[in-house]
Simulated assay, not measured.
Amino acid sequence: MASKKYTLLVAVLVMLQIAGNAQTKTDWGWDWKDSSKVPTKSIPQYNEFLNNQFPFPPKPRNAWELGLSLGTAFVIGDRPLFTKNSAGHGYNGGPSIGLSLRKALGHVVSLRGSAVYSSISIPSYSKGTTFITSGSNNSLALSLDALFSLNTISYYRANPKTNWYVLAGASLVGTQVKARQPDGKLLLVNFPNDKVVFTSNDLNYIHMVDLGAGVAFKLSPKWNLGLEQKFSIPTFGNDNLDGYKKAGANRGDFFSYSSIRINMNLGVKNK
């Protein structure tokens, strides 16, 4: 009986070894034996690691990441996202497309600059004696965000394929808002001077704070696919983004961006 137990234990160990070798062949993490991925300034630490004089290998080089985002933008304001009533029906949103460039500062924090264009259709809405006319919002957001990875605390875990993150940053948004008049024409909405940075070429430029979260799934060493939800909130409040300013106290309007992202690591080859 004892010999059977030892035989089973040896079989389990052999299976674990085979599984480990199989995973190594498809490992999309950093190969610590590849010295070409070590920055020149970190070679001393790398040599100490190889000679068992330091417990961890140095941080490897990291590539710039170029991203393309496609999704939906909403104005969260004075009407529901979806309306169905006698005044009309529609969807208070529209397509958004963006480009981004990201660079890691360390294991956890990275910086990402991006430009996102959105074209939002705003339906009319009525409830009781309240009627809000339809309109549109076309905006270009230039953002600089810090991304904080939530699952990289185990820096050198094997075969990492998923990255959960939260983000915070700032945006300068140039927006053009139009409201439909009784004769059917769309006219520009004038923003109060104290709610904009400046106005030029029918665009109102607004400072905004960015907050959001997302997840990225590694497809290969070069490509990853992500999902992200981001909110851009006017720094000093603004109730004009949906073309309707509500009388009295109001929390103001802000943007919501829901997107799918495809990201490419520049200078990295697929295995």
Rank of each mutant, 00 (worst) to 15 (best):
46 Y>I: 12
49 F>A: 15
51 N>V: 05
51 N>A: 14
52 N>R: 14
53 Q>E: 15
54 F>E: 15
54 F>P: 13
55 P>G: 13
55 P>T: 10
57 P>V: 10
58 P>V: 15
58 P>C: 14
59 K>R: 13
60 P>C: 14
62 N>E: 04
63 A>W: 10
64 W>Q: 04
65 E>T: 05
65 E>R: 02
65 E>G: 03
66 L>H: 06
66 L>D: 00
68 L>V: 14
69 S>K: 08
69 S>H: 08
70 L>D: 03
73 A>D: 09
76 I>A: 09
76 I>C: 01
77 G>H: 09
77 G>I: 11
77 G>S: 13
78 D>F: 02
80 P>C: 04
80 P>Y: 11
81 L>D: 01
81 L>Q: 09
81 L>P: 08
84 K>Y: 14
86 S>Y: 11
87 A>I: 12
93 G>R: 11
95 P>D: 02
98 G>T: 04
98 G>I: 08
99 L>Y: 10
100 S>A: 14
100 S>F: 10
104 A>Y: 08
105 L>A: 01
110 S>A: 02
110 S>V: 01
110 S>T: 03
111 L>K: 04
114 S>Q: 06
115 A>H: 05
116 V>G: 06
116 V>S: 10
119 S>N: 11
121 S>G: 11
122 I>K: 05
123 P>F: 04
124 S>Q: 05
127 K>N: 14
127 K>C: 12
128 G>T: 07
128 G>L: 09
132 I>V: 11
134 S>K: 07
135 G>L: 01
136 S>M: 05
137 N>F: 08
138 N>V: 04
139 S>F: 00
139 S>K: 03
141 A>C: 04
143 S>E: 09
143 S>R: 09
143 S>H: 00
145 D>H: 14
